[in-house]
Amino acid sequence: MSATPWQIGDVPGPKQAHILRPEVFPKIVKTLKRPLIVVGSRKEVSEDKDIANNIVIMAKSMNSPLVVSPSIFKSFMKFKDVKVVCMGIEDLVNHLKEKEWKGFDDKGNYDSILFVGGVYYFQSQMLSTLKHFAPHLKTFSMDRFYHPNAEFSFENMSEVRWVQEFKGMIEMIKSSSVS
């Protein structure tokens, strides 16, 4: 299966992301032992309360901390029942690429990084760093843009469809985590 990068020229080379179907992701979630969700600075994500709420629900269901890009941290600091860390994304990625990093709980590095809400071209480059220098990590792009530098990425989709799919996916993750 192939897809074209959201930014048409963002073609990295022979290794491009597998397309991730929202309905399949809840099954994958069960295989992730130490996930980390990274929320970028795109205002469309932080300013939409539903999306922000859904991201937090996802984090809780997956037992994942949230790392939030500093400019949108204020939108997330009110959520008390999930660990929210305010950190520059480049700084974070620099830590993640070290296999032996202890993580935010001193229990070691994470095994899977889920990106959402990043500025497209910035996030693409962060994913590229992890693709090349962090073979110990699986990377997922949960945005509505196909990110070829991730290991798994949603395909390009409209905002309306993405909001629907994302919500549906969260429901599935939530219910499967409860069961």
Binding site: P12, G13, P14, K15, N94, Q125, S128, T129, F133, P135
Partner: peptide, 23 residues
């Protein structure tokens, strides 16, 4: 140095393109 490659390949000589992914 912290690198974020734009491209997975090296295209600078006639040996290439060389795929530099996965080490």
């Amino acid at each position: 140095p912290f690198y974020s490659p734009f491209c997975d390949m090296c295209c600078l000589c006639t040996f290439g393109k060389c795929d530099l992914t996965k080490g």
